[in-house]
Design a binder for these strands. Structure first.
Lengths: 101, 101
DNA sequence: AAGCTATTTTCCTATTTAGCTAAATATGAA
DNA sequence: TTCATATTTAGCTAAATAGGAAAATAGCTT
């Protein structure tokens, strides 16, 4: 739980997720949308990846990042469940993840 | 959005919310459950209050803190909504808050 | 008023985090 | 191989955060 909230406690990182929600992107493409230098973006992506909410795929010399939306929503619903029946219901209705990837 | 995630990006603060989910408590009662000194708890409570997820009521020389569960869930569903239809549905079904308190 | 208890505020230190530049790594192209 | 591009890692500084102790504030109770 700590990793996901630490990851989301950053405006640039939340913005990165918004971009990735539209389509997978390379680090450079993401960085083009920010004032920040690429190494900083790269580190933000590492934080998001450690939290499980993005996935990286090597594509030649590029690295393509994509959102793992079930991980994002799943973790937050998991946190919310004890506070809210709706969240528990949504989790229950969710298809169980097979260890693919 | 920033305040809520910053607030939740702390294990002690998440634990405080768990306690308050059971019943309202004074600062001292909360502090009894932690190794931390009371001033630190008091500061964590201030962060949670700034994020809108707890409310404080003066009760004589005590201060009673309580969870504002709709604020906690509402903000997180609000964040989730663009990523997940379920969250949007839950928000829509939620009774609109009147400016009470 | 004086003393006691509960809480917050202030001030300080240690740790973590964000962002930068420069260097290292990895891949593709000539 | 050599050059160029994409990304990550290292090393640094500045800013933010966490926690403690001590002082300040607020409300009882005598």
């Amino acid at each position: 739980m700590d990793k996901i909230f630490k990851a989301l406690a950053s405006e640039p990182r939340r913005r990165i997720l918004e971009y990735l929600a539209v389509e997978p992107m390379t680090v450079g493409e993401i960085a083009d949308n920010f004032e920040m230098a690429m190494p900083s973006i790269s580190k933000h992506l590492a934080v998001l990846k450690a939290a499980g909410v993005v996935r990286e795929q090597k594509r030649g010399q590029y690295v393509l990042y994509s959102l793992v939306v079930e991980a994002l929503t799943g973790q937050l619903y998991g946190f919310l469940a004890p506070y809210c029946e709706d969240a528990q219901r949504i989790l229950d209705a969710r298809p169980k993840r097979r260890g693919r990837d």
